[in-house]
């Protein structure tokens, strides 16, 4: 345990709602290096509340890096400067005494700001609703071991399925593209035998809705992969593009 506290300036984005312009507001904090970034914000909010000021609205839930609720842009990076972690796993020992830290919401046309650091990511759900599933009814399925799946294939599908739906890929992309997010789900099912019957229909449906919701296109900067807290590979985007082209050339269906 470390007892030397860090003195920091937090420059935090405050915005009442999507119709009101926002601005940065400075806060001075003193924090233990063992504290997490969000615990520091909890403390700051507790101070604000005790001074009868409105706390900073931000979202988080599991604080174990798996639910995908938290998502702040810290020092210009979605989920902060340390790679491969979500905001809730960022600890203050990674910062230096005296630093000024910029804290902003995820910024993308498809993610409108609700308040302060909270954005609306419901567009992600809409893409999943368009085709991110395998059409099997409850009860009418074969034994779990009826279809052997090679370990490597299962592992690769798992690596894609590990996406937490936080939206960091969109926030990192200069075009606010959702290709990494969408391709992760498309890949999970494209790799597994269970996903084959709807493989080409699925990719078309999901891409269509993604485009309609105002996400930009992919220009291969790989920023999404670099900022993804779960290390989702851009190989998934290549796989999705391949399936999409095959679907368009060979199997175009009305979707």
């Amino acid at each position: 345990m470390n007892t030397n506290k860090l003195n920091l300036t937090l420059r935090i984005w405050r915005q009442k709602n999507s119709n009101t312009p926002g601005k940065f507001v400075d806060y001075k904090v003193s924090v233990s290096p063992d504290s997490s970034f969000l615990e520091m914000l909890d403390d700051l909010n507790n101070d604000l509340e005790s001074k009868n000021q409105e706390p900073i609205a931000f979202e988080s839930d599991c604080r174990e890096g798996i639910c995908g609720t938290c998502g702040l842009v810290i020092q210009g990076h979605p989920h902060g400067p340390i790679p491969r972690i979500a905001t809730c796993q960022l600890h203050m020992r990674n910062f230096k005494d005296g630093e000024t830290i910029y804290v902003e919401p995820f910024r993308a046309k498809a993610f409108p700001i609700i308040k302060d650091l909270i954005v609306d990511r419901s567009a992600f759900d809409k893409i999943q609703q368009a085709g991110g599933y395998i059409s099997v009814n409850i009860g009418s399925v074969p034994d779990g071991n009826a279809i052997p799946i090679p370990k490597e294939v299962a592992n690769e599908a798992m690596d894609a399925a590990t996406c937490i739906g936080c939206g960091a890929c969109v926030a990192a992309c200069k075009n606010a593209s959702a290709m990494l997010f969408v391709s992760a789900k498309v890949s999970q099912f494209a790799l597994l035998p269970q996903g084959q019957p709807e493989r080409y229909e699925r990719v078309q449906k999901m891409v269509k809705v993604m485009d309609e919701l105002g996400f930009g296109s992919c220009s291969n900067t790989y920023a999404c992969e670099a900022e993804c807290p779960k290390g989702i590979s851009i190989k998934n985007i290549a796989r999705m593009n391949r399936d999409y082209i095959v679907a368009k050339i060979a199997k175009e269906e009305v979707v």
Binding site: V136, G139, A157, G195
Partner: peptide
């Protein structure tokens, strides 16, 4: 047991042995 079957059919990528079984 039905739960496992259902989840596999939905595409839940459970861990597998080298022979491909759960």
């Amino acid at each position: 047991n039905n739960i496992i079957d259902q989840c596999v059919a939905q595409g839940v990528p459970f861990a597998r042995e080298y022979g491909g079984l759960l």
